[in-house]
Design a protein around this nucleic acid. Structure first.
Length: 450
RNA sequence: UCCUGAGUAGCUCAGCUGGUUAGAGCAUCUGACUGUUAAUCAGAGGGUCCGCGGUUCAAGUCCGUGCUCAGGAGCCA
């Protein structure tokens, strides 16, 4: 006899191992169809969905009457024989011999019919139970596992960065502010990168994996105020190594999901032909080549002058907006890396290209199918004086960055890294309409509950 | 922060150029049914038409204003 009773519990996921045997399932009523002396109970247990059939003639009158009392999302324990059938989703159904009500639910708000986004978000704590959200969460879990497996299997060590930080990391986006004891203001981290750099100098190849916070007042289907990001950082990697690693990672994630989540992708009605094309090498072009392409294809820069939209030929030096990124990506069926952006539009810590002072060794990976930016990364400035100059130029507090400058003082080496947005990746792979669907409890500008 | 759009039953929505008692489907409740797949059939209950003010003989509908929400820009993963 096993010491742990739970190890004997049967889940719907493992039903085929119990064909012909009597099992007990523990779960919730997903849906019901009454048919007089016959009752169909669609049961979900977190691992899957299974049809249970309750015949009046097979059970006691009490059990049958209990079956008639059931409501959507009531919790139950159902015992019965596992019977193969093609009439039930999943290929098996339970011929019920016993049914025990755990708790009856009353007036479950999310019915099997359609609902609007606002209503579903207000009921996010319950929405997670529905099959589509359930499938997305399982894919998310697989994506996270793929990321961890990939790094752990390639000599990387997990070195998490602090979430409370004394200053703005990149000095650009708006941060959440809080009072930190007697030491003044602290901010919720918008990136673990600077700490990852210090970690890489200690352990060689590292990655941080955690939540990150942006207080931008964004209202779009690809932004969250709290999201998860994985950030590898590697000593002795130049920009090319960085781009190769980014491609390897994304290819690995997609392959892993295709291998382990076929059922989920089917539930989501995701056409996987595009995902199957995600094989190295990906497309690559420099920023300058991309600008040439935009000019040749007459994709303009749209600016507002006195409230009116003005279209001009896209000039070199301007950062790409979603109009430009989407136009470029429309021609591709797998991700594309754009590298070597103008120095002025990128962060202070990026290393300038020795062959062209006007650009930095930065790279962004854009996904196909309107996935947007999946990755942003760069080779870091490793020269003490140049980095200090950039910090001064951006008016960043020099004292706060002293420890960061130290990394260039004591055995500085070429190093690179990038950040991959977990939700952006899951949104792309699942084909979800909105990024809020791919994180269990989304945090957005006008929504913090539940 | 700027631009655009929306708010009518528990949910999703219809409601025309202002006009009697505001509708439908689903959900809920009652009843029928031994193979349902968003089951079907018969019946019942269910409304602060987002709030406030105005125009009018008459406002869900027109005007003003406030609130809430959505998605697009910017920012980025």
């Amino acid at each position: 006899m096993s010491l742990s009773r739970y190890k004997g519990y049967t889940t719907i996921e493992q039903l085929k191992e119990s064909e012909g045997k009597e099992v007990t399932l523990r779960g919730w009523v997903y849906n019901l169809r009454g048919k007089g002396k016959l009752q169909f109970i669609i049961l979900r247990d977190g691992t899957g969905i299974c049809q249970c059939v309750l015949f009046q003639s097979n059970v006691s009158e009490e059990i049958f009457q209990n079956g008639k009392l059931l409501t959507q999302e009531s919790s139950v324990m159902i015992t019965g024989k596992v019977v193969p059938t093609d009439k039930a989703p999943g290929g098996f159904e339970i011929d019920v011999t016993n049914l025990e009500i755990v708790t009856l639910a009353k007036d479950y708000p999310i019915t099997p019919k359609e609902h609007g986004d606002a209503f579903l978000l207000e009921h996010r704590h319950l929405w997670l139970r529905s099959s589509r959200q359930h499938a997305i969460m399982r894919v998310r879990s697989a994506v996270v596992k793929a990321i961890r497996d990939f790094f752990d299997g390639n000599g990387f060590k997990l070195m998490d960065s602090p979430i409370l930080t004394p200053n703005a990391c990149e000095g650009t986006s708006t941060l959440f502010e809080t009072q930190y004891f007697d030491l003044g203001k602290a901010y919720l981290s918008q990136s673990g990168q600077l700490y990852a750099e210090a970690s890489a100098m200690a352990l060689g190849r590292v990655y941080t994996f955690g939540p990150t916070f942006r207080a931008e007042r964004s209202k779009t289907r690809k932004h969250l105020t709290e999201f998860w990001m994985v950030e590898p950082e590697m000593a002795f990697f130049d920009l090319n190594d960085d781009m190769d690693l980014a491609e390897d990672l994304v290819e690995y994630i997609v392959k892993f999901v295709l291998k382990t989540c076929q059922q989920e992708l089917k539930t989501l009605e995701r056409d996987t032909t595009m995902l199957e094309k995600v094989v190295r090498p990906f497309h690559r072009m420099s920023y300058s080549e991309a600008v040439e392409w935009l000019q040749k294809n007459k994709i303009p820069l749209i600016t507002k002058v006195d409230g009116k939209e003005v279209e001009t030929e896209f000039p070199w030096g301007e950062d790409f907006g979603s109009t430009q990124e989407e136009a470029i990506m429309e021609q591709f069926d797998k991700p594309c890396i754009i590298h070597r952006y103008p120095t002025e539009v990128k962060a202070f810590y990026m290393k300038r290209d020795p062959d062209n002072e006007k650009v930095v060794l930065a790279m962004d990976m854009l996904g196909p199918e309107k996935a947007g930016e999946l990755i942003g990364g760069s080779q870091r400035e490793d020269n003490y004086d140049l980095l200090l100059e950039r910090i001064k130029h951006e008016n960043l507090p020099e004292e706060e960055f002293q420890w960061y400058l130290d990394l260039r003082k004591y055995g500085s080496v070429t190093h690179s890294g990038f950040g991959l947005g977990v939700e952006r990746t899951v949104k792309w792979i699942t084909g979800a309409q909105h990024i809020r669907e791919v994180i269990p409890f989304p945090r957005m500008i006008y929504r913090i509950v539940p």
